[in-house]
Design a protein around this nucleic acid. Structure first.
Lengths: 210, 210
DNA sequence: CCTTCTTTTGAGAGTTACTGTCACTTGACA
DNA sequence: TGTCAAGTGACAGTAACTCTCAAAAGAAGG
């Protein structure tokens, strides 16, 4: 079966750089990718709810058990993304005396550009689904809360506070909330705006209020 | 069966003020209350996941079908709260030239005090569950997003913008995110702080940054 | 190449939240 | 009291998970 090379994705990236992983690991990666591809395809054809895990398993040529072994929930097949650690690293790399929101602006812009040029299709399909499917929105917000905790750690380092400090946590969460809402807004308006610009405006609003 | 009058709740409040509702409506209210009481009791005894809807139905002396007729999901039995419309009304009642965050401070403080004096037990149990059960957190955040849209409407009126304005939406969401995180923080620290004070600090942080 | 150990997989059975249907009961109202 | 609408329960069905266990397949050593 000829693999499509038209869409570039994190998956395909991961496929490429196989620095001599054992056969076992390579197969695992392939299965993971196959499940995700099948999922995205089926959902595009039938919609999220109409697509059952059984169908996904069949399309990916694995058993349903295997699907659940790779992804804890159906939502995760769609939503899992791997940008958090990258963003944390970038954030730590910024000069320590730079105002926090400036750092965030830079990092968010960079990560967004990276994501947009790297896997634009997935990004659009994912955010579209976010608008359409409540279950996915809920799950997304959960992962947003997780990301917020990561951000807390970095902010704590910067400000000399605890990562459990109320102010740190509130600030992180309100930033993440802002970014989330912006993403939804972008998708609602059919991705016609420049996401980077929207995010810039969002962070500006967080900083200066209405 | 003698009803406990030790705990004051919205439910019991609603029970009291029955300004001549028909028998039908009164029965509906009673069923609703029975389901919720049973749920809270069972969850306190066994935990959230271990409690099945069937058990709840049995304890509330209704059929499972009826439970689902009253609450769309198991999560909703625990989480449904009715403060949103009150807060919106209060917010509209504030002077139009008052800075938005000042209005919010007042309204949030008032609603919180009301809730705390009125149904402290439910509030504590609910927020405790919020910390323990991921599914409830997710659902809570979803309802937070809904509340955010309400807030958007009010903010739009105030600022002369659209309720779909990016800045309005981002601001609403970041405020709500802040309030949510504060609630979780409160519960995580075993409700030992004064929630009103924490919320005040949270809104201060939203206004002035870290 | 063959053996042994370990990881991964698939098959199947079970649980539970939720949906839809339909006949029956029970308040509302004349 | 009888008629109508609203509310309820029983039942059957779906789909997302979970658990268990035996078979398959890669890794490692002789």
């Amino acid at each position: 079966m000829p693999a499509t090379h038209r869409t570039r994705s994190l998956d395909s990236l991961a496929e490429d750089m196989q620095p001599q992983l054992g056969l076992r690991e390579r197969k695992k990666l392939k299965t993971r990718v196959a499940i995700r591809r099948a999922t995205y395809r089926l959902i595009a054809e039938q919609g999220y709810e109409a697509t059952t895990v059984e169908q996904i398993a069949e399309a990916a040529e694995v058993s349903p058990s295997t699907v659940f072994r790779y992804f804890p929930t159906k939502e995760d097949i769609v939503l899992t993304d791997e940008y958090d650690p990258i963003m944390v690293a970038e954030l730590r790399a910024r000069p320590a005396d730079e105002p926090v929101l400036d750092s965030l602006r830079h990092v968010v812009a960079k990560a967004t550009r990276l994501a947009l040029e790297h896997e634009p299709d997935e990004m659009i399909q994912r955010t579209t689904l976010l608008v359409q499917v409540p279950a996915l929105r809920a799950r997304m917000m959960q992962s947003m809360a997780l990301t917020s905790r990561l951000l807390c750690t970095v902010l704590a380092e910067r400000t000399g506070r605890t990562e459990n400090d109320l102010e740190v946590r509130v600030f992180s969460m309100s930033v993440l909330g802002a970014l989330y809402e912006t993403t939804v807004y972008w998708a609602e308006r059919d991705h016609e705006d420049e996401l980077v610009d929207l995010l810039e405006r969002a962070l500006h609003t967080v900083q200066n209020g209405l």
